[in-house]
Design a protein around this nucleic acid. Structure first.
Lengths: 225, 225, 225, 225
DNA sequence: AATGAATGAGGCTTCATTCAT
DNA sequence: CATGAATGAAGCCTCATTCAT
């Protein structure tokens, strides 16, 4: 077993100096985790890269896992913020067309490239703490359920089964973005990539008009008509 | 580095008894690797699960890595056989239509479900031996280049850039199949899943007619018309 | 083969505490190596004898071999210092007579008794790192070539072949000293031992006068005569 | 602890075939022991070299040590036979002079070269079974006591202390022979080597006449004189 | 707070030996 | 008798973590 609180950062850095230290540790950790994988990374190496002693590292993090969890927490917060921002934005629109889809994909891609550190990390054989897995799955479920809503309520889509389509749409885009960042960056231009993914997605879900009207607005406008 | 022959099986089992032993080790290894991930799996655990002593395990495998490589070799051979079979089959057809695509996806899905053991395994942060990485990438490249050929030569497709489209098409289907096997099996029926993926792919690459005529035949038939 | 730096001490102790630790490890190692031989000595045993944990041992030495090499390095340095001291001393003399020979043997004996630890150690079937072997041979060659010089240039010696005689003289004295220290200490008094070895050596190389005049001085004095 | 009879060959080979097998094992063992040292030699390797299975090896030898002991036993028997032969021969002589000494040294050298295999083996860090050590020491003591006798009873020698002189004489010759065989063979011719060693020994123990008359004869002849 | 020396459980691997065939 | 598969104790070494300074 593990002691309690083995996964949350040990103390909040309240002085300026400490905050710098913690940041350095996170930075170092994400570098070496990314380069070597989680299990091949030693805490000594992280400390060294961060320019602090191993003792100092353990003042802020109660375990190696805690560093990973902290890193992941950041990732999760950012990801959720992004998703929520995008959703809010879309809901403000009159309709969703090709351009909107392309924009969303571009935003997701950019966000993921910014902390490209996370990619190798949140994939793989690390025996994650269950709590982390739960949250990760929850994020996915959240996004997929929002997608499903859209698919279900927009009348001019041609998906057969909104739930499955949400899985498929989210799953492919998610995977393609990661693949792109990890392996294709040098071979394929970003604009080209986005255009193709957009093509795929749009052709998959849109009817010929290539435009989606969300349910509420559809009803509102339909009533008017 | 490592002594030579640290990755190839140490001795070929020549008695019947030992062939059983080796099989048991592979079976046990794929189970525990799958469940715990590579680095959290100990050789002791593999041996125990296989019902043999640790010494016996090391009579056939010179290292923990070698077991993984052996497992991977199987996977690679099967995967390549599958791909080559499918390609040969397709090349024998007069044209590729929705049904053909669906059939191919189903075959790939089934093949991957049969050794579902491989999934968690061949993804992740394991520091793979370089040779293995190369072969894995090669397999991917092989498949993608075949796809690209199809995209490039079939005139009635609407992909903008055959190379990118090959990446995108292969990448999504590959990822979706793995996601499905790992996470969605209980939620989503197989037929439904295949139908959706087929929809996505067909709408992505086909023109309205939803049928692809390979270049050679197209020319041949086109000439007749 | 082996990773680089598998033979050199891993980190230099920079606190006082750790210098003590390293010394304790060396001391313990030389005791148990001496008592049990190299291959029968476990690193656990060394650590226990040194009163430190196995982890501590490996903070300073990257491998079992490295401990041995470190021990040997000390031995080598001391031995060379001794030899060079003796040579310098002899070269300052007007001539070499029985007393000088006896004194040299006594000094060599004493030096070897001080770190008697080394005796069992630097004999035997340990598969030494090649570098170590080279240096050990080099030390021997160095001493023998100095001896050969003396034999060759001193005119009033009666050795037939200076090179062979150097081998023989050095070889016997070296072996006798080790034998004495290892096995005869309790049976044979030190003075008696030295007297006999001196007898042997002197009678072997000196003419009746039992005195050797080095070439330069001989010529110088001979010229005067 | 060890089971009883862990050191003696398990069964006497009574059939012709078995005798061949045992001989092959001894031959293989002495080769690999010599090349790699005792502790780096595995029983598997011995068996392989001998062309038999490991199971067969253990039918004739109850342990790895037992092989070594068996090998050593041969060595011991040969050595003692040699010594006794030489002694008997010397005792038949009227006196011992330079030629006799040279002849003895040559015989010892040749005998040791014949099974040069033994050299690396019977030196070193092997944790020998106590019984073996005892017998080895006994052989040395036996030879030395015979030498001491000679030194004590021959009146025309000039050794100060016969016991110490026996140690010194035997110790140097023994060591020189081994050194020669192991390291000097290519550099120094055998005849030259023998001449020098003889020089050393003769000058050490003989008076000017370079001839020793054994006590009995001395008395006998002295009485006559 | 920071440092880095110390800890020790536990992982991978070897190899002498046994035993079923 | 021969074979070689199986055994498991024990060795070397790593690395997450603690603690004295």
């Amino acid at each position: 077993m593990q002691k309690k609180n083995h996964l949350v950062p040990r103390k909040l850095p309240c002085q300026e100096r400490s905050r710098v230290t913690v940041a350095a540790i996170y930075e170092a950790a994400s570098q070496v985790f990314t380069r070597n994988g989680y299990s091949s990374t030693t805490t000594d190496l992280i400390a060294e890269r961060a320019g602090v002693s191993i003792g100092t590292l353990y003042q802020y993090f109660p375990s190696k896992d805690a560093i990973l969890v902290g890193l992941w927490e950041n990732h999760f917060l950012q990801a959720r913020a992004l998703v929520e921002g995008l959703i809010r934005e879309i809901e403000g629109l009159r309709f969703v067309d090709r351009e909107v889809v392309a924009r969303v994909i571009r935003r997701a891609l950019q966000a993921n490239m910014e902390d490209r550190v996370q990619h190798r990390l949140f994939v793989g054989d690390i025996p994650w703490p269950q709590a982390v897995i739960e949250k990760e799955l929850e994020l996915g479920r959240f996004i997929k359920s929002r997608l499903e809503d859209v698919f279900r309520r927009a009348p001019n889509l041609r998906v057969r089964n909104p739930r499955v389509a949400a899985h498929v749409a989210y799953g492919s885009v998610y995977a393609l973005i990661h693949e792109y960042i990890l392996y294709w960056t040098t071979e394929v231009g970003m604009d080209e990539f986005i255009r193709e993914v957009t093509d795929m997605l749009v052709r998959y879900v849109f009817t010929g008009e290539e435009r989606v009207v969300p349910a509420e607005r559809f009803e509102a406008e339909g009533a008017r008509a």
